[in-house]
Design a protein around this nucleic acid. Structure first.
Lengths: 201, 201
DNA sequence: CTCCTTTTTGAACGATTGCTCAATTGCGCC
DNA sequence: GGCGCAATTGAGCAATCGTTCAAAAAGGAG
């Protein structure tokens, strides 16, 4: 053996997520990255290859954490649909609160919009993550449907995309920094959309 | 008098809109701008000040055109609400068609997300445009309400923001380049949301 | 044609970009 | 304590960034 690695890959990635989420790919220079990670260029390139590689890993880490947060959130609810409704309200709440998060908008959406016509590899990654999220929501809704939470005519994939679009729209509106109550009302209104698809008890 | 201006400011701006809408602010270099406008740096700087000034004017031109398109669209409908519903479907249709447009996502949203933590002046401009759009939709809904198209309990400002968020979400989803029919279904589902707020005849 | 004004040109600037690599540092092992 | 490996350093690379400005070009007036 020889010298120990001074940097923990995971914590370095967390810091990279923070910077990239806040400023985007083009908006984050290597100089800023060096400062944020407290690493010198050589170490960064030895660990992550190049800026693209670092961004790609950061985006994947962001998506994974987002997935975990949704799963944790849903565990607090017996009803899947009610869990999803409250998830929308929770997003609205986090958008309205004084927030230490790097940004209110979704990093995946920011990446998609920034890279779709300038950086095909990143755009493809963002697209595949969004497709995976759509698929997860679809499966959740299919579970809900099997449990009788949804009216029988519901097309779960289609509703999943409607829900995904709500999340996107809500988080973009969050970036506008409207009144807290205004954003929370928007979250409530979006949650209410799902009521149309629920079965009445 | 002396030499004529070889470039028409308006057509130059149209070309700038195309480039910036497609690639964003950071993604468009001055070299690309020179090529797109067929102008040399000196002329560009003499006409628009600098890159920021050009982008700012392009964004304003984009917003103005978008506003005109909405107004034209609504003229085809007796009912304001039906016009708005069809507007959502039209967006979905344009997102699904083989498209010559620079991007499917909204340039204002792209600008907001790209600049919110890197370029405060641009973010402020995008924010004020979005606020103006919200206001326009609010006024449209208030007209509709006065005409008895909406149930009386509707908060028009709140519904306007819900509608604005739909448009944002729809156009981000458009950037994912899903099946044409899938996007059109999403547009239909969003249009159907408005049915909940309409009066029955 | 000659001036005069205005527009256009494009070489070139300093700053910054992403990135490299020879030199240095620090730890474990014999 | 000195050797050797691996991680870290940071000066510096070529390329590109946004921008400038002196010179050239082009039309109208006399």
């Amino acid at each position: 053996m020889a010298r120990h690695a001074r940097y923990d890959r995971k914590t370095a990635l967390e810091k990279a997520v923070c910077l990239f989420w806040e400023k985007g790919y083009h908006g984050s220079s290597m100089k800023q990255i060096e400062q944020a990670l407290d690493m010198r260029p050589g170490s960064i390139y030895a660990t992550f290859g190049n800026k693209d590689g670092l961004f790609s890993e950061a985006l994947a880490a962001y998506a994974e954490q987002g997935g975990r947060e949704l799963a944790v959130h849903l565990k607090g609810f017996d009803s899947i649909v009610e869990g999803l409704q409250d998830y929308l309200r929770a997003i609205a709440y986090s958008c309205s609160a004084e927030n230490t998060a790097p940004s209110r908008a979704c990093m995946i959406v920011k990446t998609l919009l920034e890279s779709s016509n300038t950086h095909p590899a990143l755009a493809a990654q963002a697209n595949s993550i969004l497709a995976a999220i759509e698929q997860s929501i679809t499966e959740l809704l299919e579970q809900a449907s099997a449990r009788g939470e949804l009216v029988q005519s519901v097309d779960c994939g289609r509703l999943a995309r409607l829900l995904q679009a709500q999340i996107m729209g809500l988080r973009v509106m969050g970036e506008r920094k409207l009144d807290p109550q205004t954003i929370r009302d928007l979250g409530d209104d979006m949650a209410a959309i799902l009521d149309d698809f629920r079965t009445r008890h």
